[in-house]
Each structure stands twice: as structure tokens, then as C-alpha cells.
Design a protein around this nucleic acid. Structure first.
Lengths: 338, 338
DNA sequence: ATGAAAGCGCTAACAA
DNA sequence: TTGTTAGCGCTTTCAT
């Protein structure tokens, strides 16, 4: 067998005992030195640290956890297969967690309650310190379970449980921001093209829109166009709208995908954007908003911030300071060219 | 304090000792009963199981791990912030891992080696059984570290390490499949619009394309259009191409985003698709491919399969059957209307 | 300032 | 068939 093909021998695991031996101290002393506890001579501390360094010692979190009862680990259960909403939320959560030296298990429940319970069990067996449940719809969801031994924070999709902690986006605020922008840029005849009426987000955004319209002394042109969250629907509805209300000068779209369809539909109908009609979407989904012609002005729901807040609230709860209730993360406008 | 506002008391953790007590057996017996080892009367086994069930007992994986040295946990380090490539790979990996009752820690290195080493250390401290490193470019990457105490599998971005195990997509095969499809549907004057020449994937796909063209006795029309992975580039290049070679009847695009730009560019130049020109992309990125007009025929690189294979190979390595080398996952054509 | 020893929750070898 | 016991790798009293 040549050097070339020989599999590398697995490195033996170095324990704190090895470090202690090399530094010529007892096991307990080594522990104190490495963790900065107890009273030790600075020289000893340094010697131990050096030994640990040389040996490439990585303390076993599992042994430590067994003793302390904390794993510095949380579980994130996402219902949307790492989709449009779960991803930014996860990224934000990881951000906050890393700051607390914690790390996250990722589980995808695919919206299946059975799978969700399975993952819950796996997480509990691993003694996570807490759990974040990230949904994909803004509609209220059933709690993960009752009487769980660890705190839970619901992100994006709020829990229906009375004492639960949820972090959600400001859907109404998004509608208000969008319309306020249209009004401020001089649009007076505003229409609305959005997704399914069965989605809470579509309804809430429309409600926010109505509030803002009223605040500006405006009225919606025609009825809202409820449809689905596709570009094709956006194009179709834009054409229809143009036929029914040729004098529209602003369109608030329920999300960016629809907005992109709307811009395409309008442009292909000979409208010049944003001169004749202003369009505003919701989501600030880079890929869609930036590829649209013109690039979309849109409302960012702050998904990453939802993730960050969720993780922070979870850490607080883990540390004995729970903050039950629904926490709303503000939305903000991202102005591009539409 | 009313029932309504009282915070729910944290449920006390139930241990195997509680189960044993309730079942009226010793601690060791309870363990055997629950794990199906040793010789026990079936009645006893049932009694213990029942007790565990009633108490909602969840065995502590951390205690078990300390003893057995296995955590049934792996780490996934992704370099692309859960982006276009990391996500499907992760989903596939989770798939395979769940089958082995394993669970994954997710870390996002953001392509920063410092952050990567930090995460590596955290994972090692938690005694993961193995690690998957998911990249975002197909270019070769530097190994995670040498002499690591656990097996590592590189997904998508192969490792440069001689004894390492990598799972990659078949970029050349993708180019070949695309051209073969164009040729089979009667296209004879084929052009190529793609991303940056600096990307290995752009070069490899072009190479595969050339091979397939040669196999069909065809020659590329003009030089390949190297640019960037954007729709705007696709539109621009399409117009340019049309001017230089008005008789083109097929375009192989380096990816779906470019392909979508190309279809828009061609359509807006008055070409009817797919009658006059056939277009094929690469990626099968649903969002893009399905929203294009017409929906894109494209090559799927099998990203989820890469994730699944990676996890399987990792599990094999963990179980003492490493399979070093570069494993190629085949691509396949997805026919839509373009 | 340092060492010795107990114990976290579980499994497995050995005794009964 | 069941009970008893010795650790897994570490932290943390309590002695020294």
C-alpha cells in the first residue's frame, strides 16, 4: 500500500486529561484554567492554554451539556422547505444565535404535522435549549405542542396559543407604506392587483392600503383584483384594469411577482413606466424586483429582522425572561424606479 | 394571579429513572426494555414502554452520546447564505439524513474562511459525526482542514484535497443534453449565450455543448456570447446575436436567468417562440423557468440529488466505508415549451 | 493555588 | 430474567 492510496488515520480525540497531563496539572485545574474560573496563577493558566492550543483541544460540548443542562443549541423548524420566507428568517436567526455562541438544528416539516412532531421529538431528545418555528404564511397557526420543556418562538406565522411568543411582519403597514409612496409621487387614481383573497396577507395588505388611501383623501379605482401570486395573473389583470380604467396612474401590487407581471402587462400595452403609471410591490425579493423593467419600488417586510428578533426573544426566554405576545417588525419602503 | 396570566410552569424533565420507578423495575432494565437489548420478559418490556409513553419520556441524546461517542448529528456548512444552490442541496441532504435518524446543524459561512473555521470549531465541539460542505460555485475549493477527526463530504464545489470525497454536478453533460435536445428538435443553426468566462460552470457547459455539436455534425453559429448571469445580458445578447446571425434557429443559454432574458429579447424583436427559435437553459429553477414566455426547456443539474448523495456518502464514511473521489451526479433534461 | 472526588443521564458488562 | 455497577468527559464543590 503506497502513501498515495492509504486512507488517512483518523486523529485521536484529545481530551482535557491530555491537556492537563501535558501542562503537568490536574484535570480540575486544567478545566478552571481553560474556563477562566477559580483562582489560578497566571503562569499556570497560560501553560494550560498553551498545551490545549498545541494539542488542538476542542472541549466536548456533550459532556459539558450533560453536566450543565444547557446545550447552546436551538432547533429551527421551518414549514416551507426552505422557501421564499423561511430562508431570510433562518439567516436572520442564525445571525443572532451565532452572537450568543449558539448553533441551530434545521428541520423541514413540509407543512406536515406528523413530520413536525417527529422533528420536535428529535430536537427534544437532543436537549435543545429552545425552538423557533418559522412558517410561510402569515395566517395564524396551531401551537407546536403544549407544556413543552423548552421555550418556543413563532416566526412569521403567529401561534394561536394565548401565552405564546410570535414575531410577525406588519402587513397592514406594508399596504400603507406602498400607498403613501404612490400618493407622495403624485398618483391619484390608484388600483390594486393582488393574490388570493384566502390569504391573510393579501387581505391585510389591502386593508392597510384602504387606510392610507383614506388618509390621503383618495379612493381606490374599481374593486381590488384578487387572483394569485403569479406573473401571468399580474399581466392579465393589468390588461383588464387598463380596459376598465384607462386613467389609472398608480397600481399597488400585493407582491413583487404580481408587480413584475403588471409592469410587463402595462409596458406591452404601450404604457411607459414609471411616467404614466407608478407601480409598487411588496416583498423586496431581489431577484424579482431587480429584474423587472423598470426595477420595482417595493415594501420590504423585514424578514431577516423577524429572524433576528425571534432568535433574540428566544435567547431571552431561555435566560428566564420570556416575552409572550405578538411582536410586530416594521416594514420599510425600498425605492427603485417603478 | 389568575390562571389566565400565570406563566405556564416549565415541565420537569423526565428521566429514565422516573420511567423505571413507574414501571417498578431497575434503571438498567428500563434501558434495555426501551432499546430492545438484552433478554426481558415481553410483559416487562411492554410495561416499561407504557410507563415511558405515559410520562412522555424522551431519552437524552446527550447522555447517550457521551457514552457511545456518536451524536447522530452532522454539520452542514454552506458558503452561499442559503442561496440558489445551497438550498436544494440542503434539502436533499436533510432527506437522506432523516432516513438515518440524523439531524443537521446548519452554518452559513458567507464564503468567509474565518467564519468557516469558527463554525468548524463549533461543530467539532458538538461532536458531530460528520460534515457536509456545500459550495455555490463549481470551481474547486480548498479543503476544510486536514486531519479532521470526522469525515467530510464536499457538495457541488469539489475539494482540491487528494483523498477527499466530493459530489458534483455534470456540467459538461448539461451542455451536451441541451444541444442534443436542440438538434433533435430540428435546430441546425445554434448559438450560445452564457455567463462569465471566469466561471468554471460557464466554460464546462460550453465544452459539453461543443462535444454535442460535433457529435451531430453541427458547428456553433458565431462565437459564444460570454457575459454575466442576468436577464438584462440575455436580452442584450439576444438582440446582438439576431443582428449578426438572423438565421439562428436555436440558442443554448448558460442558465435559466440568461435564457429568460433571451426569450424576452427575441420575443420583443418579433421572433415567435418556439416556432422560429428554440431556447434551452440550465438550472431548472422553477421560479424563472416557469415564469418565462414560453416556459423554458432546461437542464436540471440534480442539486437535490447531490445533497442526497452527499449525505449518503457521509453516512457511509461515518460507518467506516469511505468513498473518496469525485462523484458525478447526472443532469437531466426538463422539456417545457421553449 | 492546586488536587481529589462526586456526579450529570444514560448504556453495557457483569452478578445474582 | 432482572439488578447492580462502572464509566463516558467534563465542571464543580470541598479538601489540602
Amino acid at each position: 500500500m503506497t502513501e498515495e492510496t492509504a486512507p488517512r488515520a483518523a486523529a485521536r480525540r484529545v481530551g482535557i486529561a491530555d491537556v492537563a497531563a501535558r501542562a503537568g496539572v490536574s484535570l480540575g485545574t486544567a478545566s478552571k484554567a481553560l474556563n477562566g474560573r477559580g483562582r489560578l496563577r497566571e503562569e499556570t493558566r497560560a501553560r494550560v492554554r498553551a498545551a490545549a492550543e498545541e494539542l488542538g483541544f476542542a472541549p466536548s460540548n456533550v459532556a459539558r451539556s450533560l453536566l450543565t443542562g444547557r446545550t447552546f443549541t436551538v432547533g429551527v423548524i421551518t414549514t416551507d422547505s426552505y422557501g421564499r420566507f423561511g430562508i431570510p428568517v433562518m439567516r436572520g436567526a442564525e445571525d443572532s444565535l451565532a452572537a450568543g455562541e449558539m448553533i441551530a438544528f434545521l428541520c423541514d416539516s413540509r407543512d406536515d404535522p406528523i413530520r413536525e412532531q417527529h422533528h420536535l421529538r428529535k430536537l427534544l431528545e437532543r436537549r435543545v435549549d429552545g425552538i423557533i418555528v418559522a412558517g410561510r404564511r402569515t395566517d395564524v397557526r396551531r401551537p407546536l405542542g403544549d407544556d413543552l420543556p423548552v421555550p418556543v418562538v413563532y416566526a412569521f406565522a403567529p401561534s394561536g396559543g394565548a401565552h405564546d411568543c410570535s414575531v410577525v411582519s406588519d402587513e397592514r403597514g406594508a399596504g400603507r407604506l406602498a400607498v403613501r409612496h404612490l400618493a407622495k409621487t403624485g398618483r391619484r387614481r390608484i388600483a390594486h392587483i393582488t393574490g388570493p383573497h384566502s390569504h391573510a396577507s393579501a387581505r391585510e395588505r389591502a386593508t392597510g392600503m384602504s387606510e392610507a388611501l383614506a388618509a390621503h383623501g383618495l379612493e381606490l379605482v374599481g374593486e381590488p383584483f384578487f387572483g394569485n401570486w403569479t406573473e401571468a395573473w399580474g399581466r392579465f389583470a393589468a390588461a383588464q384594469m387598463l380596459r376598465a380604467h384607462p386613467d389609472v396612474d398608480g397600481v399597488f401590487c400585493g407582491n413583487d411577482v404580481v408587480a413584475r407581471g403588471v409592469t410587463d402587462g402595462l409596458r406591452e400595452a404601450g404604457i411607459s413606466l414609471p411616467m404614466q403609471i407608478g407601480v409598487v410591490g411588496v416583498d423586496n425579493w431581489g431577484l424579482v424586483a431587480e429584474a423587472a423593467r423598470p426595477p420595482l419600488t417595493t415594501v420590504d417586510l423585514g424578514l431577516e429582522e423577524i429572524g433576528r428578533r425571534s432568535a433574540e426573544l428566544l435567547l431571552d426566554a431561555i435566560n428566564g425572561r420570556p416575552a409572550p405576545g405578538v411582536h410586530v417588525v416594521p416594514a420599510h419602503l425600498v425605492v427603485r424606479e417603478s
